[in-house]
Simulated assay, not measured.
Amino acid sequence: MSTHAPPHAPHGPGVTRSVTLPATLDEAVAALTAMPAAIPVAGGTDLMAAVNAGQLRPAALVGLGRISEIRGWEYQDGHGILGAGLTHARMGRPDFAALFPALAAAARAAGPPQTRNAGTLGGNVVTAAPAGDTLPVLAALEATLIVAGPGGSRREMPVSQLLSGREMLRPGEVVGHLRVPLLHAPQTFLKATGRTGPSRATASAAVVLDPARRGVRCAIGAVAPMPLRPLEAEQWVASLIDWSAVRVRGAVALAPEALSAFGEYVAMACIPDSEADPDTGQAPALPPAVQHLRRTVAALARRALGRALA
C-alpha cells in the first residue's frame, strides 16, 4: 500500500509537496505514471546534494526504499539478477564479493560509511555521474538493465545505452534490476582520487577477464561523461595473453612490456592527442593536467590488468 506525506508537510525551497512510498515495483510505476513530475529516489545521496545546493526542486518524490524485491539478488541462467536497491554497503560484503569482486571493490570505494549505507546500485546508474564508481565495472561486465513499466511490463537494455543517453527511461518507468553475467573469472577495480575529495575518482579502471572466450574487457571511468571502452586495446592484449597460464602460480600470462604497452594503449584511446592545426599540420601539446590524467589512466589500466592476471 502506498503512503503519502501528510498534507501539512513543509513547502519551503527545495522541499517536495508529496512523498509516495510504494511497497512494490508496480506500485512505484503506478505512482510515477500518475505524477509525471515525480522523481524516484532510493538512497538519495545525489538527489539530496542537488536539492541542498538549490539545483533541483522536485515537485514530488517516489521513494523506493520499502520495495523489498529490489534489495537482494538471485541467480538465473548463468547471471546474477541484482536488485537496483542494493546498497553499496551490502555489495561490499564477502558473499557478494565472491561472485562480483570488481563490483564489490567499487562499492567499498564509493565513499564514507554514510554514503555506502544509503547509496544504491540503481541510483548510481540512473544518476550516471561521470565519477560513479560502479559504472565502469558495469560497463566492463556488459550488464543489462531490467526496467519496470506500466501495465506490469518489463524490458531490458544494455547499461551502456542508458549511460550514453542513447536510450532513456520512458514516462512511468523505473530500473528494477540489473542482469550481470557470472563469469567466475578475475575482475579488478582501481581508482585514483584527488583534491576533489577523499573518495571522488579523478579516474578509475575496471578490468574483467573472460577466459572462456579468451577476452579482456576494460572500462575507464571519470575521465568522460560515460565510461569508455578501449575495444582495440582489449582485443590486442587478449591476443597476447597465455590463457593457460592465467592464475597459475609462478606462471607468466603476459610479458611485462606488453602489460605496460596495454596501459599506454588504453590511455591514448581514452585521452587522445589534440587535433592537428590545419595550417601547420602539427598538434599542440596537451595541457599538463591532461598529460597527468593520461599517465594516471595508463597506470590504472596496467595495474588493474596485472592484478587480474596475477
Score class of each variant (00 low, 15 high):
T3D: 09
P7Y: 06
P7A: 11
H8L: 09
H8E: 09
H8K: 02
P13S: 06
R17W: 04
T20I: 11
P22G: 02
P22W: 00
A23N: 02
D26W: 04
E27D: 09
A31S: 11
L32N: 01
T33G: 07
T33D: 08
V41S: 00
V41L: 01
A42P: 01
A42Y: 00
G44Y: 01
T45G: 01
L47K: 09
L47H: 06
V51K: 07
N52L: 10
A53K: 04
Q55V: 08
A59G: 11
G63K: 00
R66N: 01
R71H: 08
D77G: 12
H79M: 13
G80N: 02
G80A: 15
I81N: 05
L82H: 00
G83Y: 03
G83S: 07
L86G: 01
L86I: 02
T87P: 05
A89M: 10
M91A: 06
M91P: 06
R93P: 02
D95T: 15
D95C: 03
A98Y: 01
L103V: 10
A104V: 03
A107Y: 00
A110D: 11
P112K: 10
P112S: 11
P113Q: 07
T120S: 12
L121D: 04
N124W: 06
V125F: 04
T127K: 00
A128N: 14
T134Y: 06
V137D: 08
A139Q: 12
L141F: 12
I146C: 11
V147F: 05
A148L: 06
S153Y: 03
R154P: 04
R155M: 03
E156H: 11
V159K: 09
V159E: 13
S160V: 14
L162K: 04
S164G: 12
M168N: 10
L169E: 05
L169H: 09
G172R: 04
V174E: 03
G176K: 02
V180A: 03
V180H: 02
P181D: 08
P181I: 05
T188G: 06
L190K: 08
K191N: 13
R200K: 13
A203W: 03
A203E: 10
V207P: 07
R213M: 07
R214N: 13
G215E: 14
G215D: 12
R217W: 14
I220S: 06
I220H: 10
G221V: 03
P225D: 05
M226N: 05
M226V: 13
P227V: 10
P230S: 07
L240C: 14
L240T: 09
I241Y: 05
D242I: 06
D242P: 02
W243R: 01
S244E: 15
S244W: 03
V246R: 04
G250M: 03
A251Q: 14
V252Q: 14
V252Y: 00
V252N: 11
A253Q: 07
A253P: 05
P256G: 07
E257A: 12
G263V: 13
Y265L: 12
Y265I: 01
V266L: 04
V266R: 04
A267S: 14
P278D: 13
D279F: 15
T280I: 14
T280A: 08
T280H: 08
T280Y: 07
P284G: 14
A289Q: 14
L293W: 01
A298E: 01
A304F: 13
A304K: 10
L305S: 05
A308E: 10
L309R: 09
